[in-house]
């Protein structure tokens, strides 16, 4: 962790109307990271979709449940962790959307994977899931 520059944390609960507050915090953090505006927007999309997924699937749309976001700034990339304490993510539940069928739902994780350079998740923990998203400062 010696190359670590800084860590910023944000806490929210699982009501959808908390998402705007999260985006406001995240945008403020990202624009100070020497990322392009396109990269900042892409990260905003990705983190928003992870939070959507947590609210809908980890917490089953129950209100008042914790979501913690941490942004780590490294020289070559930013890393965003999103942690919840709900039902752990099950990758078997994910199927890439058939875009030719013009789906009305199920595009969230697809947008995550398209928007950042790396996506990982950790369910080997007492509760919930920790998502880790990586965006490099220049195209990888």
């Amino acid at each position: 962790m010696t190359e670590l520059e800084s860590v910023s944390r944000f806490e929210m609960t699982s009501e959808p109307d908390q998402l705007a507050r999260m985006r406001s915090w995240l945008w403020t953090q990202l624009v100070g990271q020497a990322l392009s505006l396109e990269a900042c927007s892409a990260v905003l999309v990705a983190v928003g979709e992870i939070c959507n997924n947590v609210i809908k699937h980890a917490y089953g749309s129950a209100a008042g449940q914790p979501i913690v976001i941490a942004l780590r700034a490294l020289p070559d990339r930013v890393i965003i962790d999103v942690e919840d304490e709900g039902v752990p993510y099950d990758p078997r539940a994910y199927a890439p959307p058939d875009l030719d069928a013009v789906p009305e739902r199920g595009m969230g994780l697809f947008l995550v994977r398209q928007s950042v350079d790396d996506v990982a998740f950790d369910v080997a923990r007492p509760r919930g899931t920790r998502w880790t998203l990586v965006k490099y400062r220049s195209p990888s």
């Binding site: 999309v45 928003g48 979709e49 959507n52 013009v102 789906p103 009305e104 595009m107 969230g108 947008l111």
Partner: peptide, 16 residues
């Protein structure tokens, strides 16, 4: 200025 997959889904529903 921002739309997520839920919003895109709403547009697709309306289009259909």
């Amino acid at each position: 200025m921002y739309i997520d997959s839920s919003g895109l889904g709403a547009l697709v529903t309306a289009m259909k």
